[in-house]
Design a protein around this nucleic acid. Structure first.
Length: 270
DNA sequence: ACTTTAGCCTGTCGGC
DNA sequence: TGCCGACAGGCTAAAG
């Protein structure tokens, strides 16, 4: 499932093929994604030259002179640059025809992804309320500590709240909490300043390391060059219910937290 | 202001 | 073998 490292891996794979290219036309075979593809994208993007490929949270921003396309992979989406004649598969919903003779192809079986448009000078509502980038200097333990006072929700829910910090999904939240030794169900407001400092550092370390591994491939994720990610081999708790903790040997436990599966070591995390 | 719930989708998997 | 319900999950909007 694409979280920050997977989106960043995608960005790095796409940028060399997109920057400097002009979008000739869009082939939209399925406009009903997480949100319908807006007319503004259909009318604004064709004819534009791509200036830059940026990542903000889990969004890819494809910048042009008149505005930016916002691409989100949802949980099963992938983007690849392919020869224009590549046969179209069942879930290949959108193609951007490029002047290089290739296409940027969006594939998404579950259609939780999106393609939106943001005119130059405007900020899309979906980007407006986002918290800081976890790998930036704006994010640290004191930020988590300050934003968690008086909050009774579980610390894992806080960590996955995109208004608090972006890019951390179910996998990396579980891994960071394990590394910091914090129980995922602990009330966010009851975690000390010092432990938040540790947690913030682990979030940064794990995300940065996962990017070097090409992200985590579970089910659908593939990078633009078709490669799988290799971080799954490095997971300590996610998806390992019943298996021994790699640190202490205690069986990893799975619980539901906010309708979401959560994995932790009952001995290492408190 | 915070917390909870429903909903968007379809491939996969266990059970019968 | 085939059908069927449960489950998975990022994220938002609406409800509590």
């Amino acid at each position: 499932m694409p979280e920050l490292p997977e989106v960043e891996t995608t960005r790095r794979g796409l940028a060399p093929h997109l920057v400097g290219r002009t979008v000739i036309a869009l082939d939209i075979r399925q406009p009903r994604l997480r949100w319908p593809i807006p007319d503004s994208l259909r009318t604004s993007l064709p004819g534009q030259r791509i200036e830059e490929v940026e990542r903000r949270a889990k969004y890819l921003l494809i910048h042009t002179a008149v505005g930016s396309a916002l691409l989100h992979l949802g949980m099963s989406g992938s983007l690849r640059v392919l020869p224009a004649a590549t046969p179209i598969g069942t879930h290949d919903h959108v193609d951007w025809r490029l002047d290089s003779g290739r296409v940027l192809r969006f594939t998404d079986p579950r259609r939780f992804g999106s393609q939106l448009w943001q005119p130059r000078g405007e900020i899309h509502p979906l980007l407006a309320g986002l918290g800081p980038e976890p790998l930036s200097g704006d994010f640290d333990g004191d930020h988590l500590w300050a934003r968690s006072r008086s909050r009774v929700a579980a610390v894992k829910v806080l960590l996955m709240d995109q208004a608090i910090v972006v890019g951390v999904g179910n996998i990396y939240a579980a891994e960071a909490l394990f590394a910091a030794g914090i129980h995922p169900k602990r009330a966010a407001g009851s975690v000390s300043r010092g432990r938040y400092a540790c947690l913030a550092n682990e979030v940064k370390r794990i995300l940065a390391y996962a990017i070097t591994r090409g992200g985590t491939t579970l089910r659908n994720f593939i990078s633009p060059d078709g490669a799988r990610g290799y971080f799954e081999q490095e997971l300590f708790v996610y998806g390992r219910a019943g298996e021994p903790c790699k640190v202490c040997g205690t069986p990893i436990r799975a619980i539901a937290l906010g309708q979401r599966s959560t994995f932790y070591c009952p001995r290492c995390q408190h």
